[in-house]
Design a binder for these strands. Structure first.
Lengths: 158, 158
DNA sequence: AACTTTAGTTAGCCTTGCTAACTAGTTTAT
DNA sequence: ATAAACTAGTTAGCAAGGCTAACTAAAGTT
């Protein structure tokens, strides 16, 4: 419990608030995918992070396994994800995004990110550069941080 | 539908992802308040935005009125919000955070933001400055943007 | 007075999160 | 080699938070 400088506190407060409002705006674009948020996000991990088992996916999404069981089941029913048995360990299986899953995700990602990208276009180059650097810093902040074995995620949309 | 430069797209993608991961981490601190996220957020609007009716609160939270009805009812039961009849218009009432509501919110906000502030402390001043500027840019991006009558929010934690 | 609009609620649904308790494989230790 | 312990995943059951549709009641308009 180190003492926190008020400047850190202020910046944290504003970043926090900005992140909340940003995501609220972007989330509206997701409705066009026809996929609920948790499903979209899990699918994204499979598309960008590659095949993995349910436990790993739950950890990546920071939810408990039973929660992920339901999400994956819905994705399977929708034909967006399939399971492949692992001969070496028959307790579980590997989850893989189907071609359809990849396509839908890619379209959704384009819509969502396009919305933000349109906003970015209006910015002068100097401000754009700041946001670019900020994204990199924030990614490191979390990744190098406390819990979660999440150093190996690639360019996930999520 | 202007053409989007791929640089805008990439930055948008990374910002989006960074925002998601940031909020996931911070949300964990909220459990200590004993309040579920939507309740905490609605209470925050009442504390920082001042008294308002249910419709205005729903709009501020970007949810539909029936959703806010439930959230407010829970806050009332917990003694964190009270209603005051408006003599001029008896259809609705004004929602006001109680002293207890304000105290709980303030404690929660401190915990949550402190978590992020601790992470910020580890950064060199140059990176801290970038995040500070980024927060300001993002606030403007949304505020000056499309919908929502949200120009008048003060320093809301949410 | 009749119509329209606005504020809010109720009912009923779905999704997403949790914990507890379980099955079924795998690994470790005796 | 068998018992014990651990790991992967599911089921059951609950709560929160989101929605739409349909309603009541008050206010405002014609």
């Amino acid at each position: 419990m180190a003492r926190i400088a008020s400047r850190d506190f202020d910046t944290a407060d504003r970043l926090h608030s900005a992140a909340i409002h940003l995501l609220r705006r972007l989330r509206r674009e997701d409705t066009a995918t026809g996929l609920a948020p948790a499903r979209l996000s899990a699918l994204s991990v499979l598309v960008f992070g590659g095949p993995m088992n349910l436990t790993a996916l739950a950890a990546a999404e920071q939810v408990q396994p039973p929660t992920m069981t339901k999400v994956v089941q819905a994705l399977e029913v929708g034909g967006l994800v399939r399971r492949e048995a692992d001969a070496a360990d028959r307790r579980g299986s590997t989850l893989i995004a189907t071609a359809r899953g990849r396509r839908i995700l890619e379209e959704g990602r384009r819509r969502r990110v396009t919305r933000l990208a349109e906003e970015l276009q209006a910015l002068p180059a100097s401000e754009h550069a700041i946001l670019e650097e900020a994204a990199a810093i924030l990614e490191r902040l979390g990744g190098g941080g406390p819990r979660l074995g999440g150093g190996r995620r690639t360019g996930a949309t999520r």
